[in-house]
Design a protein around this nucleic acid. Structure first.
Lengths: 127, 127
DNA sequence: TCCCTTATTGAGATATTATATCATTAAGGA
DNA sequence: TCCTTAATGATATAATATCTCAATAAGGGA
């Protein structure tokens, strides 16, 4: 079961290390910007590719947030997310209970994802 | 409380009537295609605008499905959705129970949306 | 019925997000 | 060091959606 040999490139190291320091569910674009500070010669396509490969290897998850760009999350343990309607920030949240069970017999549920929306602490204070 | 006078245009009537006959959670593009069969002179921007105004006036809801284009749903009563991972079809589903409650005190939850994924009946049979 | 105001339209430009293409570069084993 | 080829980066392309703005037409008033 010989894996395709993976090469440990400069770009791969940099994107990984930069991403691991960002705890705000960054978009690919935000990672690009941060990476560019350290090395402006790294292409956007490479950052997109490397973020996707982090997801594939299980070192990150992609969090779709309905509007705007997908977010990347360093926390891979299953958890839920909430998005602030005011500032757009995405937060990890912990929840109590299970997803509602689908009653329809015509659909084989394999999983489900919740996205909560509302106001983060900062935004609900500045109202 | 004078509303801005709304005009009942030919385009508005057509888009509404075409959309009301589509029960498959169509994307804006799918509505465009259907509308074009009846009147190819109607512009894409108009269809997008009119679908959004249907949502604004409460005659439809927009269902974000994470990947690909948003879907429009004629069923406005709150309900949930499931997307087939094989064929991409989006279905209405009825569920039992409530959304898990967010425990974090730092976020004021205003709502939440679940998207289930799995296999529709057709696709789980054709495996 | 005709006119006038202006909401609405439609063609096309633009924005955003993401992936595909492909010649060039460089990682890492021989 | 050399060679194979995985990986890169500039750029093109795709997909979705909104914006711009001159032209059109809805519908109220005369």
């Amino acid at each position: 079961m010989q894996q395709k040999a993976k090469r440990n490139t400069r770009q791969k190291q940099l994107v990984r290390s930069v991403f691991e320091k960002m705890y705000n569910h960054p978009t690919a674009d935000m990672v690009c910007a941060e990476v560019a500070k350290a090395d402006p010669t790294i292409g956007r396509a490479t950052v997109y590719r490397l973020l996707n490969s982090l997801v594939e290897e299980g070192s990150a998850i992609k969090v779709p947030v309905h509007d705007g760009a997908d977010r990347y999350d360093i926390t891979v343990k299953p958890h839920d997310h909430a998005k602030c309607l005011q500032c757009g920030k995405v937060l990890d949240v912990s929840v109590e209970g299970e997803l509602p069970r689908v009653k329809d017999v015509d659909f084989t549920v394999q999983g489900g994802a919740v996205l909560y929306y509302g106001l983060c602490r900062e935004c609900s204070q500045n109202t």
